[in-house]
Write a protein that binds this DNA or RNA. Sequence first.
DNA 1: CTTGTCTATGCAACGAGTTGCATAGGAGGA
DNA 2: TCCTCCTATGCAACTCGTTGCATAGACAAG
Lengths: 185, 185
Amino acid sequence: MALEHAILVSLLEKPGSGYELARRFERSIGYFWTATHQQIYRVLKRMEGDGWIDVREVPQQGRPDKKEYSVAALGRTVLSRWLHEPIEPESVRHDLAVKIRGAAFDDPVALIGEVERHQRAHADRLTHYLAGQLRDFTGPDAPTAQDAGQELQHAVLRGGIAYERMMLAWLDDVLATLHGLRPEH
Amino acid sequence: MALEHAILVSLLEKPGSGYELARRFERSIGYFWTATHQQIYRVLKRMEGDGWIDVREVPQQGRPDKKEYSVAALGRTVLSRWLHEPIEPESVRHDLAVKIRGAAFDDPVALIGEVERHQRAHADRLTHYLAGQLRDFTGPDAPTAQDAGQELQHAVLRGGIAYERMMLAWLDDVLATLHGLRPEH
DNA sequence: CTTGTCTATGCAACGAGTTGCATAGGAGGA
DNA sequence: TCCTCCTATGCAACTCGTTGCATAGACAAG
């Protein structure tokens, strides 16, 4: 499992509270690893108990105090060990693909709206990624000399962009197939 | 959750035993939905209890008897209802992306072997998909006039092919980035 | 003749992930 | 003033998914 490791990476990039992590998991990290705040708080507690991360109570004004977590020496060791051991290529789970194959036994045309909805969602994500790329990496305000961390973050973001573009093209293909089915129906 | 639905679709395409389903989930269905035999047997039992599927004991020679499952009327209804309700675009989980961002805090060069390993795995899958496409859809032995089911299965397979090609190109990109980091290290 | 693989089914325990709910102060709008 | 949203943390219950193990006959290779 990699939620612990995703949290370690995120805290190395920048220390933060469970709440802040939850928000990052809705944004940048969430592009390739999702988690809810309940899950994050639970895992943070365990990681703290295991000595992977340190806590610091940060009093705040006008809002509740927060616990800021940062990676401890042991956490770095654990992450390093994980980085050096091979992992299996991810197993995919695509509800939509199940639906598309299932549509053969129902009304395929009824699926068109759903596919278009997904296409819009992917188009939105793509727009969002491209804006992020312009802001952080390729735009005029982006830092010119980039360190390893930025180079790698950019590489991951390019992966997200490639994924969304692929999905948009494929969903176009699926729509064409669904429309092509119409006459014989 | 969609394991039930994936099983219903698979059983509609062709009735079969838990064992056969488990093998299909290593092959065609497994391209977009993974499940182990333990999971499948457990869910089949529940689905049978709920009246979604029917069982038929099939005695065999030279090998253990099997229970052949097929979709009951209620199962069809359940599937149809699911097909008509909207689902959220999948949440992705990419261990490798976590590793790539994590590599900035360790030795990025050490990741090259791992990325190449993943690339080989994706190349193998692509080869496998392309062989399947040739066999079932575009080759000389493929049926000429295809029904809706085949058209849709082919569309899903094209999605798998597009995905693997995208991954191969992206992993090339990642490798180039990792190599580009070398000098400054 | 033993070892290993294939078909075929399943239990038990555990770990991961989701859903619902709860608390609580401050800010802003109707 | 009340209602809602935002920050911030967390528990409890449940479902989903993984891992390890067990059984058992048939067949092939060494």
